[in-house]
Design a binder for these strands. Structure first.
Lengths: 143, 143
DNA sequence: AAATATAGTTGACTTTGTCAACTATACAGA
DNA sequence: TCTGTATAGTTGACAAAGTCAACTATATTT
């Protein structure tokens, strides 16, 4: 492996960590933390999901997740019920309120990305998406 | 702005947040947190630097930074001295030990990236670096 | 010289995340 | 079927990370 490639990856990581930080910074004004928002996203996307699956997807500690889910349930964002196939597990779904919250967060997140992209020419924006897709494709196979 | 581009950026952000998390996870075994490691990196790269500059580069709270620098000084990693041009400010440099710590962290970080890239064919790795460079170029101008 | 701004420090606090112990259920093998 | 082991989730106790406001000291502006 060439060291120049490793170096480029590290340059990119520093740069993109900042970029994501910049994006997220504004979303943090919402009532939900980034982790919560991501959890809500995963539940929405899956339709219904097991807590253990969220753990696996997000590489998040189970006690931490458990507490977050407890809070979200208390706020009426999610519903938990015993899993039918496995009585140890709980199946989680978004409540109606939860879906509304998701829509709100989703819109805010779209707007945030859009704002950061507006200075770009449309050809640049398209190129950006192209390069991103390519990176995901390269890295995804091997993880 | 096309919604498909926004969506692709968001897909990428989720994916890459995970990827960076994966990378960093192992570095956390070191005696230094990610933020500390990044601060050490910035001091090394700049040669000598003002605390306020680190704040600006890293978008980090000044009280938080102040405390981290205090700790690093106590451990003999950095040296602080009153800035010559501005007596309010402090100029920070790495001590000899600090440079050793940097080299260690730097090597560990390189190895970590390398490990994640080994499954890639060399053409893929090169393509990866190419796409990364392109993204930085597109986004950098406008920030 | 007075008012205002900037650099950094400190105290008090909140949020985020971790670790180990525990309960309950599932599963695999003797 | 009993036994041991693994998995799902919860809880308590704690540690790490980050924030906010007040403060000192110096610089800058008017």
């Amino acid at each position: 492996m060439q060291t120049s490639i490793i170096e480029e990856v590290r340059v990119f990581n520093r740069f993109y960590t900042d970029f994501i930080g910049l994006l997220n910074q504004y979303l943090l004004d919402s009532a939900y933390s980034l982790t919560e928002a991501r959890i809500i996203y995963e539940i929405f996307t899956a339709g219904n999901i097991q807590a253990s699956q969220i753990m696996e997807i997000m590489h998040i500690d189970k006690s931490y997740l458990s507490r977050i889910l407890k809070r979200l349930e208390k706020e009426g964002i999610i519903e938990k019920r015993k899993s039918i196939q496995d009585a140890r597990g709980i199946t989680i779904t978004l409540s109606k309120k939860g879906r509304q919250v998701f829509e709100h967060l989703n819109r805010a997140s779209n707007e945030q990305v859009e704002k950061l992209l507006t200075p770009l020419k449309s050809t640049e924006a398209e190129a950006l998406a192209f390069h991103m897709k390519a990176i995901v494709k390269i890295l995804k196979v091997h993880s």
